[in-house]
């Protein structure tokens, strides 16, 4: 039996896009790189100590949890002490941009999928593919479009971390009790009124759970994305692997865990508060 040239077909079509559109994506990359380094530099302007205190205060203000606030303080100080501060800021910047992008794209898609069963039928299998495809695979086409570096990393991260935002937004809206939607209809609500006055507010806790997962996935992706030059904490881990430096590998790993815990707890709190 002849081999079906599936891989060749995919490669050919990607190449087609690269040949015809990469000038656009490359231009986009230049701009994005500027934006990213501007953000990083702005954050670096702050003295790390000041930054850390601000974060701890912010955590307390958002969650009113003294323990978590102290943990943030101690954890970030440890990171600074390990001389991983610059890498951490770079990672946070990357995660921030990737997550925001994923949410800005994912939440509206989730809304549309929840409201239209036809869109939903298309979106669900695409999401299945996105979630089960090994994350490394996204890195390969990211390079010809965006070149080696942070923008390619962000692209791969966005794709990898978007599915939960879409899925949980969709789920949250679908879970709004049918009788409440009916009631909103009975009172003459328009589509938008129904969405903004009923469905979105009621779906918020679920959507926030999706946001949380998106952030966590983005954070886990940055290590992988380091392979295509994302640097940051992932870069530290990657370098440690290549040189078999167990100690500094674990240090960078711990720094990622600290950042993850802080983000996770704060977002979880924001999600549950709305109920």
């Amino acid at each position: 039996m002849p081999r079906i040239p599936l891989g060749e077909a995919i490669e050919a079509s990607i190449n087609f896009f690269v040949e015809n559109f990469s000038f656009l994506t490359i231009a986009f990359t230049r701009i994005m790189e500027g934006v990213i380094s501007f953000m990083e530099n702005t954050l670096m302007l702050l003295h790390p100590l000041l930054f850390i205190v601000i974060v701890a205060a912010l955590v307390f203000w958002l969650t009113r949890k003294r323990g978590l606030s102290l943990f943030s303080l101690a954890g970030l100080l440890l990171i600074w002490n390990m001389q991983l501060w610059d890498a951490t800021v770079s990672t946070i910047t990357l995660v921030l941009i990737a997550t925001l992008t994923a949410l800005v794209i994912g939440i509206p898609i989730g809304i549309v999928a929840a409201l239209s069963s036809r869109v939903n039928r298309v979106v669900q299998p695409v999401l299945d593919v996105m979630q089960t495809m090994p994350a490394f695979v996204y890195l390969i086409p990211a390079i010809p479009f965006f070149g080696l570096g942070k923008v390619a990393a962000i692209f791969a991260t966005v794709i990898f971390s978007m599915p939960p935002a879409i899925r949980l937004t969709c789920l949250g809206i679908q879970q709004v009790p049918k009788d409440l939607v009916e009631c909103a209809d009975a009172f003459g609500s328009s589509r938008w009124q129904k969405l903004f006055k009923l469905q979105l507010p009621m779906a918020t806790p679920t959507i926030m759970a999706g946001v949380n997962q998106t952030v966590m996935l983005a954070l886990s992706m940055v290590v992988i994305a380091a392979m295509i030059g994302a640097r940051g904490l992932g870069g530290e881990v990657w370098r440690a692997i290549q040189r078999l430096q167990m100690g500094s590998g674990f240090e960078a790993g711990i720094a990622i865990v600290i950042v993850a815990i802080i983000l996770d707890r704060v977002l979880q709190h924001l999600g549950s508060k709305k109920q």
Binding site: P177, D179, L180, E182, C183, D185, A186, F187, G188
Partner: peptide, 14 residues
């Protein structure tokens, strides 16, 4: 019509 003429009270409150 729903806005101006028809008010509804639901069996399960809603």
């Amino acid at each position: 019509v729903r806005l101006t003429k028809l008010g509804m009270v639901f069996q399960n409150f809603a």
